[in-house]
Design a protein around this nucleic acid. Structure first.
Lengths: 120, 120
DNA sequence: CTCTTGTTCAACCAATGGGTTGACAAACCG
DNA sequence: CGGTTTGTCAACCCATTGGTTGAACAAGAG
């Protein structure tokens, strides 16, 4: 469990149940039992999921009587979006540059010589 | 392997080696051997990683002589950013509303009665 | 056709992950 | 105090994953 933060966040959100929990927590804090209610798994399993989300920094838990309300921490999302946007931007720039290059090519030069049936 | 698309993408990017491959592919296409070079794992392991990335829709492979150049497909990133932004936005709105609420509260009403050190 | 290069497939192994049940801790309720 | 509610910890099970080695396949190059 000594993975880097980015791996932890991606990994935490790779599970549909955990994503659903995050989705529901976006609407408001909830107790473990409340969170567990819709799923047909034990409350212990949900507790484990929450631990994963907490280790990823996606949620935090406070204490309020016996309850441990779970709260969504939105800041960690930035970690992901920054990573994603960076490489998407690069990929798109590269794509655009390739487009430009093809645009300016003389007509008689073919970037990938199509098999014209003519033997070489 | 019948996971939903979002799970596949998050899961694929949960591995640091695969993220590094994506990062390098953002700079340009590469063959499997080229991709494998920096890592001290076998080329078969890299081939497996590429299969995961391909199943997630993050890369595509064409054929060029014996080589199978790997190409980064940036569109899938949108799937993630849309999901992330949606819930981050909700969480932030909720946070803002809570702020507003606290702002308008009369002074003598305490939202969560702080332990005043009185009884145990 | 044979050889070489690049890549994948198959079988296997150790570690991890998501689930279970059962016991336990913490805090309120009587 | 003794119970009840709420949640976690521990041990275990089984499927998945990331890695290995060894063989096979695909497509030039001789």
């Amino acid at each position: 469990m000594a993975a880097d933060p980015l791996s932890r966040v991606f990994s935490a959100l790779a599970d549909p149940t955990r994503r659903d929990m995050v989705a529901r927590l976006a609407a408001g804090d909830a107790s473990v039992n409340e969170l567990a209610e819709p799923y047909d798994v034990t409350v212990q399993a949900v507790s484990k999921h929450l631990k994963v989300l907490e280790d990823a920094g996606l949620v935090s838990r406070s204490r309020q009587a016996q309850r441990r309300p779970v709260h969504l921490e939105a800041e960690v999302f930035d970690l992901m979006t920054k990573w994603i946007e960076r490489y998407r931007r690069l990929a798109e720039e590269r794509y655009r540059r390739l487009d430009d290059l093809l645009e300016t090519l003389p007509d008689d030069i073919e970037p990938t010589p199509p098999q014209t049936g003519a033997s070489r």
